[in-house]
Amino acid sequence: MATLSYVNVFANDIVALSGFYQRVFGFSEIEAIRSPIFRGLDTGKSCIGFNAPHAYELLGIAEHAQSSGIRFLLNLDVDSQAEVDRLVPIALDAGATLIKAPYTTYYNWYQAVLLDPEGNLFRINHML
């Protein structure tokens, strides 16, 4: 069976963007894999990687570097509805933009929808 090891985010500023997720969610950096074009954060179950634009060439996908629009949705699960409510203002203070305030979905999850400082979409979720 396959498992998810990383979700990688292409970022203009890997230090600032990985720092945003560290400050808001308390994820620790995996310093052993740090490089000038990469930062990795341990989320406890999988990892989030942040690649600098130079990685487009390294991966052979430079022709796609000019693509725009939302390309992924990062979902971060927390232990309670109160934790969703607690983290939203922390994310906003750290530079996030609120797209949809915390609400209960039709599938009975409590979540908020935000953009990180580089415009990447993420949700803070709790399954009720």
Rank of each mutant, 00 (worst) to 15 (best):
R71P: 02
E57V: 14
A16T: 07
Q66E: 15
D93C: 07
R34I: 01
I90A: 14
N8S: 13
I48M: 05
E29G: 08
N51H: 10
V15E: 13
Q66G: 15
L59Q: 12
Q22K: 15
S28P: 05
A11Y: 03
H126E: 10
A62I: 10
P89N: 11
D79V: 08
V84F: 04
G60L: 12
L115P: 01
S28D: 09
C47T: 08
P117W: 07
A112D: 00
G119V: 13
I61T: 14
A11S: 14
A65H: 10
H54Q: 15
T104P: 00
L59Y: 12
L74Y: 04
A55N: 06
F122Q: 03
G44R: 11
L121A: 05
P89A: 10
I70A: 15
P117H: 09
D116L: 00
Q111L: 03
H126S: 08
Q66N: 15
F20N: 05
G119S: 13
R39Q: 06
Q22P: 05
L74N: 08
H64Q: 14
D93W: 03
C47R: 09
A101L: 00
F72I: 12
H126C: 13
N8I: 06
Q111M: 02
Y107M: 05
E31F: 06
F27I: 04
S35L: 02
S28H: 09
Q22V: 08
L4F: 14
R86G: 02
A32P: 01
R86P: 03
N51K: 00
Y56T: 03
I37N: 07
D13L: 05
V88I: 08
D77F: 11
S68Y: 15
N120Q: 14
G49E: 02
L87C: 10
A94D: 06
I124H: 03
D79F: 04
K45W: 03
F38D: 00
A82M: 00
L76D: 02
A96S: 11
G60P: 11
S35Q: 09
A55W: 00
A82S: 12
D85G: 00
K45P: 00
L92I: 14
Y106N: 12
L17E: 02
D77Y: 10
E63V: 09
I99Q: 10
F38P: 00
E57D: 15
P117M: 10
V113Y: 01
G19R: 02
D116V: 02
